[in-house]
Write a protein that binds this DNA or RNA. Structure first.
Lengths: 340, 340
DNA sequence: CAGGAGTGCTTAAGCGGTTAACTCGATGGG
DNA sequence: CCCATCGAGTTAACCGCTTAAGCACTCCTG
């Protein structure tokens, strides 16, 4: 099948390619009748603009990029990315001329190298950055090369707008909920300390512990992998005066920890309550179903694209606050065991 | 930051842009000394080719496409796609000039429309098609418009090469394994009947049931969602002379079914053995860990890209047989209950 | 020493669009 | 009735790169 170009349309309509271009782009320079005719012909013949040619003249590639920097193993299971991708795609559907370019990298350097390459090759018009660190170097690099970007995470100094959600109030709510169930010793298994949101949640957790005058609290750091969740659980459960509730920073760690607890003969929720700071079908799939905070990740994807569109149009955008996570109580949390 | 073009390099090297092009592309037409100099300058100045310009002259976009046609909900949880994507990315890393374009669609029509659009806009050089149906119309459309493609699934009549794995032997092995554990009544909860691999497995299951002279067997069809898995489990467990083992076509259905069984007081594996035809971290994450068939999905992604590269280079490729699924026995399968 | 064959480079057309500048005819105001 | 103005097109340059064709120049050969 032959691909049509505007000169095919021009021939069919009996006008020049310039006129066709004006007609198709809704620009002045052609009569209403001609425009109508060109539009009709282009539509009937099924013409679509060559993205390469448009990219060359408009210096817009019509694509936005997302780089996922996780080992393949973790990638497979974490629902986070696919939820994010579906949000992005939902927002992109409003404008079918934009596509999503996805890359998976092994490490941060490869990620940065890919941003540079995409920029130099003019492959993407902008990117969405995830897993923001405190003082993340990526935002600096992106600002330096001038690649429009929107980040997911707490606002950072610099020019990259962020889509963020308040973790403090939900943390307060979660600890309050556990306290109301009678828990006085609550642990938290966080993600890597380098992530900005990890630190914010650490702080919020500390404040909430204070507010509710817990007897004991502790924060461990994992790496979002199932192994690290199980390891943390085993450590916490081996302690003398152990935690009766644990809040995990993602679903994978929470689920692994629940499995580890079961193996140690610790029943959930009878002897241990578990909360996951990230809801997904996973949490609903297992038994007991896991109490989780729904972070509306899909919504984050939508907001990120909307913000990126604004950056592309206006050159800059404000930080955007996404709806706060919502606690979804399920079967993995219960009243504190009476003997504790 | 300014983006460099070959004329910047040409100026710096004191030659014409044509000479620079020959030098950079390893084509004859320049002396070794000039080539060396141009290469060195381009490298030092950090020049990268504009993808748009290359796409225009070479009529190659430097991207391959993948369309995922699942509702956002299922998408989030199914590890399949991310595993596939990591395989694709692994293979793509060998050639950094190729990128992955990802789209998520609501239905088959939208998927086909997206193929047409990508082709007409020259956005991708080829695509990878997943979830092949028996007599899938997509391969016909792709052949018609001439968009190079590789499909994942059983070879179909037509011109699209397929990456496929034999399901018959593993099915035989799985049923044999369950039979050896004493199971005489085995059910199978398959994916939608329209998928080619579903039908193949149905057949293989029927044969294996015959071979092992089972007392009873049954095949239900789900849609890969957790709900459908749970529903199937409840139906199977409500029967009079019920199945003692069930083989599910994916991990999500298997896990949901296990949860449903637990809710009905049916212990796994004591009263019911469960097998998932799709291994993932999910299966290892829950307790009891789920016996599963590892389909080497990442490897399928790698093979798909390699085959697609061949199609792009040579114009066609043979079907490729991927390694067969391997049974990974875990805690969800056990000896048949003595009272059955 | 003219003529042919290589080198090594430049020139220019072209890929499929966009768009500034120009042309041409109709209109209208003075 | 003449000229400025405007609308509706056309023309051609350009985006960054590729590549066929052309053009000096050297070298070799008879």
């Amino acid at each position: 099948m032959k691909r049509l170009t505007i000169s095919d349309i021009a021939d069919a309509a009996g006008v020049s390619t310039g006129a066709v271009s004006y007609a198709l782009n809704g620009k002045p320079g052609v009569s209403a009748a001609t425009r109508e005719r060109v539009l009709e012909i282009a539509d009937r013949m099924g013409w679509r603009p060559s993205n390469a040619a448009r990219a060359l003249t408009r210096s817009r590639s019509g694509a936005i990029g997302l780089i996922v920097d996780r080992p393949a193993q973790v990638l497979g299971i974490e629902p986070f990315f696919m939820q994010l991708v579906s949000g992005i795609e939902m927002a992109l559907r409003a404008d079918p001329s934009t596509a999503l370019m996805l890359a998976v990298t092994d490490d941060r350097d490869a990620e940065i190298e890919t941003y540079r390459r995409w920029w130099a090759e003019r492959r993407v018009d902008g990117v969405i950055v995830v897993d923001l660190h405190e003082n993340d170097i990526r935002t600096g690099v992106l600002a330096e090369i001038g690649l429009p970007a929107v980040a997911l995470g707490y606002p950072q100094p610099g020019e990259v707008p962020c889509v963020w959600a308040d973790d403090a109030a939900p943390m307060e709510e979660t600890v309050g909920y556990l306290a109301a169930l009678g828990h006085r010793r609550i642990a938290r298994v966080a993600g890597p300390g380098r992530f900005a949101h990890t630190l914010r949640r650490d702080e919020a957790f500390a404040r909430a512990v204070e507010t509710h005058q817990l007897e004991w609290s502790k924060t461990l750091h994992g790496d979002y992998s199932g192994d690290s969740g199980a390891r943390a659980a085993r450590r916490l459960l081996s302690e003398r005066n152990r935690a009766t509730a644990v809040i995990f920073d993602n679903d994978v760690m929470a689920l692994s920890a629940m499995a580890a607890a079961q193996e140690m003969g610790v029943s959930v929720p009878d002897h241990l309550s578990i909360v996951s700071w990230d809801d997904s079908a996973l949490c609903r799939l297992v038994r007991p179903a896991v109490t989780a905070l729904d972070r509306h990740i899909t919504q984050h994807g939508v907001l990120a694209i909307e913000t990126l569109n604004e950056v592309l149009a206006v050159g800059t955008a404000e930080h955007v606050q996404a709806p706060a996570p919502i606690l979804m109580p399920r079967a993995s949390t219960g009243r504190v065991p009476s003997d504790s």
